[in-house]
Computed example of a mutant assay.
Amino acid sequence: MNQPLARILVIDDEPQIHRFLGPALEAAGYHHRRADNGTQGLREIAQWSPDVVILDLGLPDMDGKDVLARARAFYEGPILILSARDKEGEKIEAFESGANDYVEKPFGIGELLARIKVALRPRTVAQPAVTKVRFGDVEVDLDMRYVSRNGEPVHLPPKEYALLTRLISGHGKVLTHKELLVAVWGVAHTEDTQYLRVAIGQLRQKLEMDPASPSHIVTEPGIGYRLKREG
């Protein structure tokens, strides 16, 4: 079986960086996405769960170190800083905030690809990508963005579908209220837990055998939710 393509998210506001880096990443066999500012980048990290994040420090809406700090509240994957800031203090602060590597601009594509490969090395034993997920009488086809229950299609609006797929990506682990809110509604809504409660309730109505006593979308009181795929 072919290994799934590693997903690389590039957060940088310079169009020329994306024009240069995008084709190089594709040619190296990676799947990539771009984000042009910190807000968009945080949303992509939460929703797409990239294997590696390449982050510029000089972003138009917030400092890259703030993006780094916020990302580390919910993302454990490698983050490579790509920046024209070459002062030792900047590098130290970035590493202390959770960066895994630091590449100065201008950079050589060969060096950057080598650093990406190193960042991915501990993750090469990851399980193959799953395209279909079942729990109870529900099936989710992640490639087709199709949800069914007992063979019948289930309509989920974009927010509900995004919430479901984020729960699926947790592989049974508890996802905090904040993590789910960032993933689905964005960083401006980390305190809007009522949005999350309503969406969880709607998912349970559509997917649970007994919404009042859910067996799959489980509440962890005061923390968040997790998806139990057993049974």
Rank of each mutant, 00 (worst) to 15 (best):
residue 101 D to A: 08
residue 100 N to C: 13
residue 52 V to C: 05
residue 70 R to G: 08
residue 113 L to G: 01
residue 61 D to R: 15
residue 97 S to F: 12
residue 49 S to C: 12
residue 80 L to E: 15
residue 97 S to E: 03
residue 75 Y to K: 15
residue 97 S to K: 07
residue 99 A to V: 02
residue 59 L to I: 05
residue 107 F to Q: 01
residue 88 E to Y: 12
residue 107 F to W: 08
residue 103 V to C: 00
residue 114 A to Q: 14
residue 110 G to W: 09
residue 81 I to Y: 10
residue 58 G to R: 08
residue 75 Y to F: 04
residue 116 I to W: 10
residue 88 E to H: 15
residue 66 D to E: 13
residue 77 G to M: 09
residue 116 I to D: 00
residue 89 G to H: 13
residue 117 K to Y: 15
residue 72 R to W: 04
residue 108 G to M: 15
residue 89 G to Q: 14
residue 63 D to A: 13
residue 68 L to V: 12
residue 99 A to Y: 05
residue 115 R to F: 08
residue 82 L to N: 07
residue 85 R to L: 08
residue 53 V to W: 04
residue 94 A to D: 01
residue 80 L to R: 11
residue 60 P to T: 07
residue 79 I to W: 08
residue 52 V to N: 00
residue 86 D to H: 07
residue 110 G to N: 08
residue 60 P to K: 09
residue 49 S to P: 04
residue 114 A to R: 15
residue 67 V to C: 04
residue 107 F to K: 11
residue 84 A to T: 06
residue 87 K to G: 09
residue 86 D to F: 14
residue 53 V to I: 07
residue 76 E to N: 11
residue 82 L to A: 02
residue 58 G to Y: 13
residue 99 A to W: 01
residue 81 I to G: 04
residue 106 P to K: 06
residue 104 E to P: 09
residue 97 S to N: 12
residue 67 V to Q: 02
residue 115 R to W: 11
residue 54 I to S: 00
residue 99 A to M: 05
residue 100 N to S: 08
residue 77 G to L: 12
residue 102 Y to F: 05
residue 94 A to T: 07
residue 65 K to G: 03
residue 85 R to M: 13
residue 65 K to N: 12
residue 85 R to F: 13
residue 50 P to L: 02
residue 85 R to H: 09
residue 111 E to G: 03
residue 110 G to V: 05
residue 91 K to G: 03
residue 84 A to S: 07
residue 51 D to M: 10
residue 57 L to T: 02
residue 58 G to W: 12
residue 50 P to W: 10
residue 100 N to F: 09
residue 54 I to G: 03
residue 66 D to M: 14
residue 83 S to T: 06
residue 81 I to E: 06
residue 66 D to A: 12
residue 78 P to K: 09
residue 91 K to F: 12
residue 70 R to M: 08
residue 74 F to M: 14
residue 62 M to R: 12
residue 107 F to H: 06
residue 61 D to Q: 10
residue 90 E to V: 09
residue 112 L to C: 06
residue 108 G to Q: 10
residue 90 E to W: 15
residue 77 G to R: 07
residue 54 I to E: 02
residue 90 E to N: 13
residue 105 K to L: 10
residue 117 K to S: 07
residue 108 G to T: 11
residue 111 E to R: 14
residue 93 E to D: 06
residue 53 V to Q: 02
residue 91 K to Y: 10
residue 110 G to C: 08
residue 70 R to Q: 11
residue 95 F to N: 05
residue 90 E to G: 14
residue 98 G to F: 02
residue 96 E to W: 14
residue 69 A to G: 10
residue 88 E to W: 10
residue 85 R to W: 11
residue 109 I to T: 09
residue 68 L to T: 03
